[in-house]
Nucleic acid binder design. Structure first.
Length: 136
RNA sequence: AGCAAUUCUUGUUCUAUCGCUGGUAGAUUUUUUUCUACGAGAGGAAAGUCCGGGCAACAUAGAGCACCAUACUACCUAACGGGUAGGCAAUAUUUAUAUAUUGACAGCAAGUGCCACAGAAAAUUACCGCCUUAGCAAUAGGGUAAGGGUGAAAAUGUGAGGUAAGAGCUCACACAAUGGCUUAGUGAUAGGUUGUUGGGGUAAACCUUAUGGGUUGAAAGACCAAAUAUAUCAGCAUAGAGUGGCUCGCUCGUUAUGGCUGAGGGGUAGGUCGUUGGAGGCUUAUUGUGAAGUAAGUCCUAGAUUAAUGAUAGAAGCCUUUUUUAAGGUACAGAACCCGGCUUAUAGAGAAUUGCUUUGU
């Protein structure tokens, strides 16, 4: 149920480059999100990239802490987006990065992560609808 | 008992739920994978990347220059710019012995340079002064480093002789530097004796002397190897048919290339090794002032690669405050090839030594 294997992480260097060049982005404080979607794929998957940049967190301990918080909250709340991708047959890659000097509490992280996931789902749904209308 | 300094040791624990990365065993699957069980999973500094070494690749006939680093002695160590023990110097305490701390601690008596302001002059000095020669005098020339004041620093200090006036110019004593001999010491060095000298500072100024250094770091390096394109080779097909260049264009001519299948080298994505058992830790005995050495016993599975070692909830322990029940706090900080050091950060707890204060006997 709540597993989080390496397959679900984004490891390929070219895909990461592609994500940061072409991806759409929005900000829900204290996180900034970039994501891309590919439509009409046979075996759809969701890839995630978790970031805590050195610019905001100087010490390695704090960076690890922030990453772990994001990971846990994503792990427990990822079910909806996976189901969405399966039903709509689209590939989604997401990058979530912390944009704050302070490490937030776990409750705040969890709420914002849920918000982020909902927003991505809505946006992609709109995109799909537009796509189908254009085809018609 | 309290306070301070130094050194050393340590660096909170448990439960539940949901997870992550390796290992072993079993099941599943052609393999990859997936599942289950068991057990493992950050530090004293993992940090800074400042030294030294292992390991790897490349380079390498020999010598010199340049560049960089180091610079009292002996020892320890695989090695070091590290450590231990000592010498010397400076500083602090002290009547003193002594104790503690610090130390780019070779050379300015090889050469070159620099020394703000003040001062006559910052190193072949001469403003006032003193003496002397010329001159009626003003002044000019010469001698001098005693006296004056400046400065962080002014030609070693005191006394006597000496002189036109003076001067280490000479002598005595003292001070400093340095060479020889001798005593003690493995040695740095110290004591004694004797000779020479009196040279301002600065080498964290260039420089000189001695010693050492090949360069790059695990993103080193070795191996396996999809897809796509393809050097080369083989077979089949096509013959002067097609395409490109030469031509403004056309024709002729000339030149280059070749379609399919298979083998195949290099090599990208990706993967495997390197990669964690070692100059290893602990205990005891023993040698040594000590750093350390020797012997015996015993113990030891972190190994990621967009990067695991966690999150949440609860409880306990410790510290502080206080209304005695609550509140707050619980450091510094996260492995990345591996070792030995150094430096820096660090809540709290414990041990030892030294010093001071107070109380009791």
């Amino acid at each position: 149920m709540y597993k989080f294997h390496k397959k679900e992480k984004l490891c390929n260097r070219d895909e990461i480059k592609n994500l940061f060049v072409k991806g759409q982005s929005f900000l829900i404080y204290p996180f900034s999100v970039r994501y891309t979607t590919k439509l009409n794929i046979n075996s759809p998957k969701v890839h995630v990239l978790l970031l805590s940049p050195k610019r905001y967190q100087k010490l390695a301990v704090n960076r690890n802490r922030a990453k772990r918080l994001i990971r846990e909250s994503y792990r427990l709340n990822k079910e909806s987006i996976i189901q969405f991708s399966k039903t709509q047959a689209c590939d989604i890659t997401i990058a979530i990065s912390l944009v704050s000097n302070k490490i937030p509490l776990y409750i705040i992280v969890e709420q914002t992560i849920i918000n982020i996931i909902d927003r991505i789902i809505q946006n992609t749904q709109n995109q799909i609808e537009n796509h189908t209308q254009n085809n018609k």
